[in-house]
């Protein structure tokens, strides 16, 4: 399930959600190559498309290895609880 929050793209999987700021992504494909669960497909610019979001185990490799502050991963409940508190 994909939605938008301003220019942030949010992809919600079973347990985790991934936020992508496409305007910061330079298509280095590091997140795509290093994701242990191969969650991402690459668009023609090398930017990540979280096709298999449900496979995401929230390891955070994509966020850690992204040089452009373009991608973040969060457990879903933490996202929901934040909105409640």
């Amino acid at each position: 399930m994909h939605s938008h929050e301003g220019e942030i793209e949010i992809a919600e999987g079973r347990e985790f959600l991934i936020r992508i700021r496409r305007e910061r992504c330079k298509g280095c494909e590091i997140c795509i190559e290093f994701c242990p669960k191969k969650v991402f497909e690459s668009d023609e610019f090398g930017c990540p498309i979280p096709e298999r979001i449900d496979e995401c185990i929230g390891c955070g490799t994509c966020e850690l290895r992204c040089p452009d502050f373009a991608i973040e991963v969060e457990p879903k409940e933490c996202h929901d609880s934040e909105e409640k508190s």
Partner: peptide, 14 residues
């Protein structure tokens, strides 16, 4: 000031 000036794949952002 993002996106920063470093090239795609440069490690400096990390």
């Amino acid at each position: 000031n993002l996106p920063h000036q470093w090239c795609p794949g440069c490690g400096y952002g990390v």
